[in-house]
Design a protein around this nucleic acid. Structure first.
Length: 1174
RNA sequence: GCCCGAAUGGCGGAAUUGGUAGACGCGCACGACUCAAAAUCGUGUUCCUUCGGGAGUGAGAGUUCGAUUCUCUCUUCGGGCACCA
């Protein structure tokens, strides 16, 4: 027998697999047997494969090989994310074109991965920087653009001065650039964004349906950051305006500040407002602000601060806006308006109502600037009658005979302290309560009876909370407004409850905190106590006080009540707010996919057009047989009104029997002379009216929902079958005998933008045919296909239609144009100086704009920014399914066959980047009808970090980097694979251990050397056979749940058992080799062929275990006396309970420990344990 | 500050629904083979011990016949978010 020589056999088998295409993707795939295994897409760095990479590919491969042996049809893939900053930065450093570098590193990286012996279908290898790939990255951008999900906007962005590029929020780590660690600054720039915020709800909802690590799901939820609350409008007045004017409720109040709050119930406690310094509101008020110089200075100071500064300096700063006041809509109280940088412009509305009593930040601010603090939520509640023995409700304290008395409630009884047993102190509850109230002026926590200063509501059922508050401070309500503070120790909380005034004061002095303000009034000590954490006041619900009609309501009740009131009185409404921001995708860099858009200097289509930010008039047209009160029309009217946009939805004549000319006339009447900034929306039949109007009038925009196509064959060619004569008659009356009669040339010239909504299951308007029709006549129209939207009717949930509202409101940009899909890909030119200047390098490419004007018209140029590489990795898992398809990103058949991914392994660092984006892309494809699932990764797991031998993160700096290829060369890929899997649980961080690698090598040597002991006629050892079947079971179970380390341990046990035998049965050894195959494929293949098999072990079936062989006829069991193990007995498997008990009692050690006593009780858990209690 | 997660021998880590804690590997010790070393094979290896036992899964309590596992409090470490209204 030769020695185990991994070098030789690994090369041999890798060649064999490649030549025999052993791991080509199977064709006979069903939804039940398909198994798509996806390792995370790596960047091919110059330093090559890292041990962390090897961990991912090995784990995926072991899983893939196991599933293959279990009979699954496995697709395992590999690719590279070769676009992006690392390659470009390296190019800049070395002055070598990134393409060259990438080709080199690709070759190196791929050969390193292949050397691990992974069972990947290499014919499906993809690389994001190849034109065949990024053509579809660009296609995805166009899809987003068409659906209104890609937009260009000027706003403050994250900018890295060193990388000279914009960064997404997820790429900013602790205020620093993820790549180069430079402090990120804010810069006003026009950038492309993807509207991922539109999908916030869907991204949140889908998390409940996927098998991902709980931690990851939570992190995505936190990142999306949904909070429910209300928008509340505060009117703003100039100081000095008379009350009369103020009271006249003018509908066109110019200055309204809207705030978002999650605690509308505290509205009565809003004693001032704060605006974000860089926000729009401040600018709007500029003319009325009398201290503008001061304000401007503050704004400037803030804008100079980086986000990092803002995070570090948490000291509150701010400036009051003099000359203006806001009015709290709840109580008509005038309150001051401030600006402060603790309010950020990008969340909510960039303005808050400040409720200092119940918000920590407002509280700090109010304290610093001496603003009034009004409590509106009483701290307490919880049912004192509920809970455990220890639950105590402290009702309050009073002073008597120089002692401070605590009233508290325990279960149903009210006690007085001190002393006395329960019985002695038992008193009539009502009497005691009354007496207590009379003496203290304190009224207990009965909802509705709370008075502002009552203060000490330490009512709680949880001893934890009680301790917490007592430890912090006891605030005691005495007569004449005097307060004392007491302190309670953690362990003996009752100790301090009884104390003299002096004791109380000194206890208080000892435990002074910054939130306690003692004043000696001369007559006594006045202590003002602010709760240490007002955050708790915010998060913990309570009873509303000081709030007029909300008094006595719980927080939840008060929220509902105040929102109802606000909505009824037009001061606000319910609102869900998200932390998630839109995703900035344009980069001023070279090494990425060019954005497939055209730009021009001209901002209008014709001489007379002028598009302001918002439309000044919206005309909505309802459908045939419909009216202005139906479907989404009422909602749209309301929303537009709230945004102060004038809109009309006229009732069109005879909606049941419409006539074209009547409708046209009726709508024309509603329009003024200048319609250039008017938006016309229409649904179904009336879309034709909208188009007809646009032949002669200029519009800002048309938004057509489920449009009938304006041909006379509409109802025959496309319409649903079985229409009766009546319908035909009406349709004819409407359309007349017109055939393609519209002048689309004029329409296209007259309208700034045309958006068309279609639904995949519209019973009247066929999606595909209508799409084709409009693509032909209005190629630049943006066609948005909505999944399962029916006829955009109320039955399909279209009483609200938010993307439609967005389209109405959206700024029209005639200076931007998407490229037609047929012109993709936009090839990245290579005649580019890629040194960063802050300008996109493509600006300087001589060839990039060649022929663009000739092809697309004068004045048009290609967009010179490139796409964030995260866009490449947001869809790569689709490309593997059909990597050579030049027409589609993947064919519908391939998508149906393999998606979603069955197992996805990747690092936890991408949770709020890639993993969110990939889900977003998938959901957009779903909504657009391309796919039938909306979550890409059914099962997802993370791998942990492999640390250096010193326990630190591997880094050149620590000189503790392990190169996987060195390990493969020295010990072989099988050893490398198994060692990485044996180190510990896959998802945990674990340090590398040189000796551990040797241990695995030793194990494989032992497996190899077992050949010496093989025999085909050795006697079958029953114990060994049972062990074998146990191992088969355990290894299979562990593999299905990725417990690689324990599976390997079990294999080692089996091998150790084999070594206890003189001879090993050939069949047993064969089973061992198949179990080993997923982990160490090369040695397994070699042994398999030595054993005489011709076929690859990779395609062998997984061993089955025999259920009957798992259990022997005897087993060993522990006997306990009083819970301590005192003996171990071997019992027969079918022994009766009595037999076992008598056997246990006969054990000498048991007899000894029983000490002659009779057992009180014997607990016998069959086959597991027997415990004797004396 | 807020929110998660973790803590087991000298080390990496096992332990099913609460049922003989320390599987497996490393390291270490001893033995066999060898002139010797390495490699290999074998034995032992939680700690204390007066060799009867005793203690023991970060600390302290609780529930239980029985707790690494469940509950509460605390400590330490790791991670995430961070003025998100």
């Amino acid at each position: 027998m030769e020695n185990y020589n991994p070098k030789l056999i690994e090369a041999k088998w890798q060649k064999h697999w490649e030549e025999h295409k052993t791991f080509a993707t199977p064709e006979d795939v069903t939804p039940e047997n398909k198994c798509y295994i996806l390792p995370q897409l790596p960047y091919p760095s110059g330093s090559g494969l890292h041990v962390g990479h090897a961990e991912v590919y090995t784990a995926c491969d072991i899983y893939a090989r196991y599933q293959r042996m279990k009979g699954k049809k496995v697709l395992q893939v590999f690719g590279l994310d070769s676009f992006g900053l690392p390659a470009e930065n390296y190019a800049i450093k070395t002055n070598v074109h990134p393409q060259e570098t990438i080709d080199k590193t690709t070759e190196n990286f791929v050969s390193q991965v292949k050397a691990l012996g992974v069972s990947v279908d290499w014919d499906r290898f993809v690389r994001s920087s190849d034109p065949g790939y990024y053509k579809f990255t660009q296609w995805f951008f166009l899809l987003m653009y068409e659906r209104g999900l890609a937009y260009r906007k000027k706003q403050a962005v994250n900018w890295c001065e060193s990388c000279k590029t914009v960064l997404a929020n997820a790429q900013v780590v602790d205020g620093h650039c993820e790549r180069c660690d430079t402090v990120v600054i804010q810069k006003e720039m026009e950038q492309w964004y993807l509207k991922i915020t539109d999908y916030a709800d869907k991204l949140l909802e889908g998390l409940d349906r996927i098998d991902w690590p709980a931690e990851t799901i939570k992190r995505q939820k936190d990142w999306i950051g949904r909070s429910e609350g209300a928008l509340i409008q505060f009117n703003v007045y100039e100081v000095g305006e008379s009350a009369d004017i103020r009271n006249t409720k003018s509908t066109k109040l110019r200055n309204v500040i809207e705030v978002f709050t999650t605690r509308p119930d505290t509205l009565f406690g809003a004693t001032y407002m704060v605006l974000a310094p860089e926000g729009q509101y401040v600018q709007d008020l500029k003319d009325n602000i009398t201290n503008w110089d001061e304000v401007e200075k503050y704004i400037e100071e803030t804008s100079k601060k980086t986000d990092l500064d803002r995070q570090i300096e948490k000291d509150k700063t701010g400036v009051e806006l003099k000359g203006v006041k806001a009015v709290n809509p709840a109580n008509d109280e005038e309150i001051p308006i401030w600006i402060a940088d603790y309010v950020i412009a990008t969340y909510g509305t960039g303005a808050i109502m400040a409720v200092p009593a119940h918000d920590e930040r407002d509280f700090e601010f109010a304290k610093k600037f001496g603003l009034p603090i009004r409590e509106v939520v009483a701290k307490d509640i919880g049912d004192p009658l509920e809970g455990e023995e220890k639950s105590v409700g402290v009702y309050g304290l009073l002073e008597r005979d120089g002692k401070v008395l605590v009233m508290y409630e325990k279960k149903n009884d009210l006690y007085r302290l001190p002393g006395g047993t329960q019985e002695e102190n038992e008193t009539d509850y009502e009497t005691l309560k009354r007496e207590f109230a009379e003496e203290t002026g304190y009224i207990n926590n009965m909802p509705g009876e709370c008075k502002g200063q009552v203060g000490v509501h330490f009512l709680t059922t949880k001893s934890k909370e009680l301790k917490h508050y007592i430890r912090k401070i006891f605030s005691v309500q005495l007569k004449n407004e005097e307060k004392v503070a007491l302190y309670g120790e953690d362990k003996d909380i009752y100790e301090y409850i009884w104390m003299t005034r002096e004791e109380a004061v000194s206890a208080f002095e000892r435990n002074k905190t910054s939130n306690v303000y003692p004043h000696d009034t001369g007559e006594g000590l006045l202590v003002k106590y602010y709760f240490d954490g007002y955050d708790e006041c915010v998060s913990e619900p309570g009873i509303t006080i000081n709030s007029d009609f909300l008094n006595g309501l719980t927080t939840e009740e008060a929220k509902t009540a105040i929102i109802d009131w606000l909505e009824k009185n037009g001061h606000g409404k319910r609102k869900v707010q998200y932390k998630l921001r839109d995703w900035s995708v344009s980069r001023q860099r070279f090494w990425g996919a060019p954005i497939p858009m055209l730009t021009s200097q001209k901002s209008i289509k014709s001489e007379s057009q002028k598009f302001d930010e918002l439309p000044d008039f919206v005309l909505n047209l309802h459908a045939w047989g419909s009216d202005p009160q139906s479907h989404f029309h009422p909602w749209i009217s309301k929303e537009l009104a709230e945004k102060h946009i004038v809109s009309i939805t006229p009732l069109l004549p005879h909606p049941e029997h419409p006539k074209f000319n009547d409708w046209l006339e009726a709508t024309q009447k509603e329009l003024s002379k200048d319609t250039t900034n008017t938006v016309v929306t229409a649904r179904s039949l009336s879309c034709w009216i909208a188009l007809a109007l646009a032949q002669t009038m200029e519009f800002r925009k048309l938004v057509l929902v489920a449009p009938s196509t304006p041909t006379k064959d509409w109802y025959i060619g496309f319409g649903r079958e079985g229409w009766g004569d009546a319908e035909k008659e009406i349709a004819l009356a409407f359309f007349g005998d017109k055939e393609d009669c519209l002048d689309f040339k004029k329409i296209r010239k007259n309208v700034g933008e045309i958006v068309i909504y279609l639904s995949t299951n519209d019973p009247y308007i066929p999606c595909d045919a209508t799409k084709k029709y409009f693509e032909k006549y209005i190629p630049e129209a943006r066609i948005i296909i909505e999944r399962d939207a029916g006829h955009f009717d109320i039955e399909h949930g279209y009483n609200i239609f938010s993307s439609f509202l967005d389209e109405i409101m959206r700024e029209v940009r005639p200076d931007l144009r998407p490229l037609p899909e047929s012109d993709l890909p936009v090839i990245l030119p290579d005649d580019v100086d890629f040194k960063p200047t802050g300008q996109s390098p493509l600006t300087y490419s001589p060839s990039f704009q060649d022929g663009v004007e000739e092809k697309y018209g004068k004045g048009w140029k290609r967009e010179v920014d490139t796409l964030d590489t995260f866009m490449c990795s947001s869809w790569y898992f689709f490309r593997y399914l059909d990597p050579h398809n030049e027409k589609e990103f993947a064919s519908p058949e391939a998508l149906k066959k393999w998606m979603p991914v069955d197992f996805y392994l990747g690092g936890p660092e991408h949770v709020n980047g890639h993993l969110l984006y990939a889900r977003f892309f998938t959901k957009v494809l779903y909504d657009a009808g391309y796919i039938d699932f909306d979550e890409p990764f059914t099962v997802h797991r993370h791998q942990g970090l492999i640390l250096g031998p010193d326990g630190r993160k591997m880094s050149k700096r620590w000189e503790n980097v392990i190169n996987p290829t060195d390990v493969v060369n020295e010990f072989g890929a099988d050893t490398m694979r198994m060692y990485e899997m044996f180190m510990g649980p896959m998802e945990e961080d674990k340090p590398w251990d040189e000796n551990g690698v040797k241990g695995i090598k030793r194990f494989l040597d032992r497996v190899w050397n077992l050949q010496d002991r093989l025999s085909d006629n050795a006697k079958l050892d029953l114990e060994l056979d049972r062990k074998l079947h146990h191992t088969i079971q355990k290894v299979g179970d562990d593999l299905s749940k990725l417990g690689f380390n324990t599976a390997i341990a079990k294999l080692m046990e089996l091998v150790n058992e084999f070594y206890k035998q003189e001879k090993v049965l050939l069949t047993s050894y064969q089973s061992l080799v198949t179990l080993l195959a997923p982990f160490a494929p090369h040695i397994s293949e070699e042994l398999w062929s030595i054993l005489g098999h011709k076929d690859s072990i990779s395609l062998e079936a997984w061993s089955a275990y025999d259920e009957d062989k798992l259990t022997g006829d005897k087993l060993s069991m522990a006997v306990q006396v009083n819970g301590k193990v005192r003996a171990s007995i071997v019992i027969s498997i079918d022994a009766t309970d009595d037999e076992v008990e008598s056997m246990a009692l006969a054990q000498p050690n048991v007899v000894k420990w029983l000490g002659g006593q009779e057992p009180k009780k014997v607990i016998y858990v069959k086959g597991r344990i027997l415990n004797i209690v004396v």
